[in-house]
Amino acid sequence: MSDKIATREAYGLALAEFGAQYENIIVLDADLSKSTKTEEFKKKFPERFINMGISESDMMATAAGIATTGKIVFASTFAIFAAGRAFEQVRNSIAYPRLNVKIGATHAGITVGEDGGSHQAVEDIALMRAVPNMVVISPADAVESRAAVKAAIEYDGPVYLRFGRLAVPVIYDKANYVFEMGKGVETAPGNDIAIIATGMMVGSALEARQKLSQEGINARVIDIHTIKPIDKDIIVKAAEETGAVLTVEEHVVNGGLGSAVAEVLSEYRPTIMKRMGLYDQFGQSGKPDDLLKLYKLTPDDIAYEAKALLQRKP
């Protein structure tokens, strides 16, 4: 865990990197290319970049129209506008006809920071997960983000990609990392408890794991980068082998990763669980680190909840 890089940064760089190989990629942005980092693609391939202005709804349906001609289209804006404002365009013009549009949604979660609750999407996973035909991916670090972009390019259909604004630790080794859409990653082994996380919370879970190991607790950390379709097998296996499952996400616990894991376990392997995230709350302004403390989503909080959950283990 040396370097820190925001997943949105990795997204922009990946688009610019793969743009050379895949000449039918078209990138759209809604006046946020400097923030979503699609400007990296724009610099290299200006003829394949379209600035749609501050018109997210128009952007999503336009992306759908471009995709009907056989292009791979990336449409980028903040998660709050992609999944929120343009929800119905994403639903009816992209997902319903199952067009090949990738939604690059950046600035997800409370670590957007100072801009505050109006700009912090904390319900976008739930919204996108409910839409038929939509794949939902929430990468943990820069390496996984790059790999997710490549997988999205190679997949024919709509994909929602969730990225963060905050620089976060790089946890995977680029040379060895293998991304498989729909498959979770056992990021660290352990049999006392399973911490299942997504997005930047995977890095925090790994830090929590270290703290727990100092107290003799071996926590397994599972990275669910693809929230839909979810990797049922890795979740059920973790439940069977550890007997306690803690989920962590930078999102409300209703409808997000915690819900998805609970759905799997209640059907296939009822297990004691705790879902960490936001509890029917919006975010607010503040430094990202201060907000993570305020909303109890730090490695210390994860370790605390893990121990509390272990007390409940039969």
Binding site: I26, E47, R48, I50, S57, D58, M59, M60, A61, T62, A63, A64, G65, I66, A67, T68, T69, K71, E88, Q89, N92, S93, Y96, P97
Partner: peptide, 24 residues
């Protein structure tokens, strides 16, 4: 050529097809 029904979206999609035609 395009799934429609929710008003306002079809014209955006038509723009997308026209933009792609220009690019290609």
């Amino acid at each position: 050529d395009m799934s429609t029904g929710s008003l306002g979206q079809g014209i955006s999609a038509a723009n997308g097809m026209a933009l792609a035609g220009k690019i290609d």
